[in-house]
Structure formats: C-alpha cells, structure tokens
Computed example of a mutant assay.
Amino acid sequence: MSISKSEWEIMRVIWTKEEATSGQILEILGNKNDWTASTVKTFLKRLVDKGYLVRTRSGKSYLYSSTLTEQDAMNQQVDDLFDKFCQRKHTMILKHLLKETPMTLTDIADLQALLLAKKEEALDEVPCNCIPGQCRCKEHLGL
C-alpha cells in the first residue's frame, strides 16, 4: 500500500525519533505544512490503518512507532513505482535518477562496484513484462 507525500513526512519524523506523539509531530511539521492537530491525527490514523505504524498508550496520549524500517519502506515504494512501467524502461529511469542525484565519490564507487557485480547476470535482452497493448515492444507488435 502506498504512502502519500504528507504521510511520508510523518513517517520521516517517526523514523528519526523512533517513536513520537502527535504533538511532537505537529511541533516539527506544523509550520512547514500549516497543519492542525486534527490533520496530524488523521494522517496517523491512516498510517496505522495501512499497517505502517503502531500506537501505544502513554499517559493521556499515544506514542506512534513504525512497523518497518525506512530502508524497507523506500524499497517498497520504489518497487511499487517500477511495477507501473515496462521493465525494458527501468534503465532509462535509473539513468535519469543517476543524472539528477547528488553523489559523493564513495557513492559513485559503490554504484560502480554494483554494476560490475551485476555484469555477471547480464541478459542479452531485458524481457518485456507488459500485456499486449500496453507498450510497443516487438513481441506485442507481432514482429
């Protein structure tokens, strides 16, 4: 299940603090987003309903904590996004991301090492994962 941009803002606070009350979240994000307490509580309820957060009673308020790591959530969101596109176009998306993403020399070295390791499992041609009519790949055109 996907997380909206606003829900993602809340999740980032919770991952940073490990657990937080709605008041703490409002204090951090309220001015940036012009949110009210009820807005924050609505987003928190949605995140609990989606299974991304759990809440525990702490006195008169609730403490919210994440059910998954930030890395797991990022991977899930990227996988969901890439599932929307023909896998033959994934490399174009990655090239765009590489051009647009600020990186250190260490980041670049890590990516180069990953690409070298990926070379061992390189395909002659990436298969299309679309159904006929969704893309222009040659197997769907009857060529």
Rank of each mutant, 00 (worst) to 15 (best):
V48A: 10
K32C: 13
S61K: 15
Y52T: 04
V40I: 14
K84P: 00
S66Y: 01
T91A: 15
L53Y: 01
R55F: 04
S58V: 04
D49A: 07
W35I: 14
T21V: 03
Q87L: 10
T16M: 11
E19M: 11
K84E: 07
S38F: 06
D79F: 09
G51P: 10
V54Y: 03
Q77Y: 05
N31E: 14
F43Q: 05
Y64M: 00
V48S: 04
G59F: 05
D79Y: 06
N75Y: 09
Y52H: 14
N75L: 09
A20R: 01
V40K: 03
Q71L: 02
I93V: 10
M92F: 07
D83N: 11
M92Y: 05
E27L: 09
E100P: 02
G51S: 11
T42P: 00
K60M: 13
R57Y: 01
N31I: 08
D34V: 11
R88E: 01
L29H: 06
Q76L: 02
W35C: 13
C86N: 03
K89A: 14
K17L: 15
L47Q: 01
T69C: 09
Y52Q: 08
D79E: 04
A20N: 02
S61T: 12
C86S: 03
V54I: 07
A37M: 07
G23R: 12
K89T: 10
Q71Y: 00
E27K: 15
G30T: 09
T91L: 14
A20C: 07
T39G: 11
F82W: 04
V54W: 03
L81C: 08
D79T: 08
V54G: 06
N33H: 15
Q76R: 03
N33E: 12
K17D: 01
W35P: 12
F85K: 00
N33F: 15
H90D: 00
R46S: 15
S38M: 09
L81P: 01
K89G: 08
Q77I: 11
V48P: 02
F85Q: 00
S22G: 14
K84Y: 01
N31D: 12
S65G: 10
S65M: 11
L94A: 14
I25R: 06
T101N: 09
S38V: 10
S66W: 00
L53R: 02
M74R: 12
M74Q: 06
L98Y: 10
Y64K: 00
K84S: 06
K50V: 03
S58R: 08
V54C: 07
M92R: 06
G30A: 13
E18K: 10
C86Q: 02
T39F: 09
L44S: 02
K41D: 12
V40G: 03
A20G: 04
E18W: 01
F82H: 07
A37K: 06
T67Q: 14
L44A: 05
R57D: 03
T36C: 14
H96W: 10
K89Q: 15
T39S: 12
L29T: 05
G30Y: 09
T42Q: 09
A20H: 01
K60W: 11
K17R: 13
K60P: 04
A37W: 01
K89C: 14
L68Y: 08
T67N: 14
E19C: 07
D80L: 08
L98S: 11
N31Q: 15
G51D: 05
V54T: 04
T16C: 11
S61I: 06
